[in-house]
Computed example of a mutant assay.
Amino acid sequence: MMELIATAESVEQGKSLLDAGVDTVYVGEDEFGLRLPASLSLDDIRTLTDYAHDNGKQVHVAVNALMHNDRIEKILPYLEGLESIGVDAMTVGDPGVIHLLKKNNISVPYIYDAQVMVTSANQVNFWAKRGAVGAVLARELTYEELKMIQEQAIVPVEVLVYGATCIHQSKRPLVRNYFGYIQEKTPSMEERQLFLAEPKKEDTHYSIYEDINGTHIFATDDVNLMPQLGKLADAGLTRWKLDGVFARGERIIEIARLFVEAKQAFENGIWSDDLSIRLNERLHSLHPHERALSEGFFLKDPTEIQ
């Protein structure tokens, strides 16, 4: 069974994504979730969850932040709030949060999400045996590595098929520190338009922004696995994630429709190279023009990655 998951930046966008055919919307509050398009309150999450359930869909909530003591002390009421809402699952990477879930008998299922550290079936299965109902795989894995994990994992695993890849996070406010050092006003982070470029490679575009969780730097290319969906499907990798942190508003909804069309083609047995090419061309036309697209690590030889 294929599942299409997409981030949502608002209740209305979440409803539109579900109406477009997405199976699960992914939201959260930025105090407890990482790199979200926007921070949604518990009231927002309740409204969206009610709508999703009325339409036979799901809501997953990000609880995958790097938890220091101050966050751990605040998180139990949030977990209890998610339980009362009836969200379908939460993503968690901190063992301290998993301990609280078990200690307090919080009934919301959790999906293990420790970002770049989820790189083997052994790690996936370790957490599956401790209650995880799924895992979010690292975005730096090759097809051969993904296929091997899928063959050995005892719970479903999620693969990013579209969106940005974070390559560095610091809990420190590095952007603010930098502008303070050069004695200039720190620009607004709301539009997330700052980027770093290599002096000898002017076309590089390492997006950077700062929020309550620190500083985040993203790869110069966003991931696009539309041309490789056949390989994913053949390998049984059918839980697909769309990350709209840099594809805002109507743009991510239109991109989601392309992946919904692809999913339906697989389910109806009519997926073809021609359809893949047409959908990929439309995706490129919708993707933000200032951001490059590539297949990331997917086609690389694991032995040659440096």
Rank of each mutant, 00 (worst) to 15 (best):
N105K: 15
G96Y: 05
D43K: 12
I154T: 15
I208Q: 03
V124R: 01
T220Y: 01
L160G: 05
P187Q: 11
I75Q: 07
K74N: 13
D301T: 02
G14W: 03
W127A: 02
A8I: 02
L160H: 09
N177E: 15
F246N: 07
R46Q: 12
N105V: 09
A292S: 13
E267H: 10
L229Q: 04
K103Y: 10
A20L: 04
V175H: 04
Q152E: 15
T186V: 14
A219T: 03
R248G: 06
Y162M: 12
R35G: 00
S10Y: 02
Y178M: 11
A247Y: 00
G81V: 02
R282A: 10
N104P: 13
I106E: 01
G21K: 05
Q169G: 05
P187I: 10
V124I: 03
E202Y: 11
D234F: 04
I217A: 11
L194M: 14
Y209I: 02
L4R: 02
R139L: 10
A262T: 10
H289A: 11
K231D: 07
C166N: 14
K231I: 03
K57C: 04
E261S: 13
E140W: 03
N104A: 08
R248K: 15
K201C: 11
N268L: 12
V136R: 06
D43W: 09
A135T: 03
V27T: 00
E202K: 14
K231P: 04
H60G: 00
R71T: 07
R35H: 06
A135R: 01
A262Q: 07
L100F: 08
N213R: 14
E29N: 15
F297Q: 01
V161H: 00
T186D: 09
L232K: 01
E191W: 12
E250H: 12
H168Y: 15
S276A: 15
I167P: 00
V260S: 03
T215M: 02
G56E: 13
L34N: 05
L137Y: 08
A256G: 09
A65N: 03
A20Y: 00
L237P: 00
Y26E: 00
V223F: 05
Y143R: 12
L258I: 13
I255S: 00
L275S: 09
V133I: 12
E210F: 06
T303V: 12
F297I: 08
N125E: 08
I149Y: 06
Q150F: 10
D274H: 14
L160V: 13
A114V: 01
D273W: 08
S39A: 10
I253H: 00
Y178I: 14
G93T: 01
T142K: 07
K15A: 03
H205M: 13
H60T: 05
L48S: 01
H68A: 12
V159P: 10
E12M: 10
Q152M: 13
L279C: 08
L225W: 07
